[in-house]
């Protein structure tokens, strides 16, 4: 699971969860994969990203590296920043670990890079 995916994940559909975002990450295995850097793509994605969530997620998995805590102004032209974001969003991959609902503490296991977001019948 890449952090970009995590950035869209929510446990909102759970019963009793209002926001369910962002999910906490408890990563036991993080993999860094090389992904071609496309600044335009990253810039476009950045529009849809919840940056604080990304920051915390990156921080939680220990690959914060020097990702700025605050989103840079005019990031479209800041290739350095975009590269960092690119790394955080697309190159960091949680292979094994857990996603934890911030409200209920419900844990969603991540195995083989696939988060299992299935809920039980009584959790919906």
């Amino acid at each position: 699971m890449k952090l970009i995916t995590h950035n869209f994940l929510s446990s909102k559909c759970m019963k009793g969860v209002n926001v369910g975002f962002p999910l906490k990450i408890s990563a036991s295995d993080v993999k860094v994969t090389e992904v071609d850097f496309n600044p335009e793509f990253v810039a476009r994605i950045m529009q849809k990203i919840d940056y604080p969530a990304l920051y915390t997620a990156t921080e939680s998995i220990g690959h914060l590296e020097d990702l700025p805590k605050q989103m840079v102004e005019n990031y479209e032209n800041d290739e350095h920043f975009l590269k960092k974001v690119h790394h955080a969003l697309l190159q960091l991959e949680v292979i094994n670990g857990e996603l934890i609902c911030p409200e209920t503490g419900r844990k969603f296991p991540i195995t083989n890079g696939i988060p299992n977001m299935l809920l039980n019948e009584d959790e919906i």
Partner: peptide
């Protein structure tokens, strides 16, 4: 992602 269409985790 493994999910259920009825409860999309997005």
């Amino acid at each position: 992602i493994i999910l259920d269409n009825l409860s999309l985790p997005f």
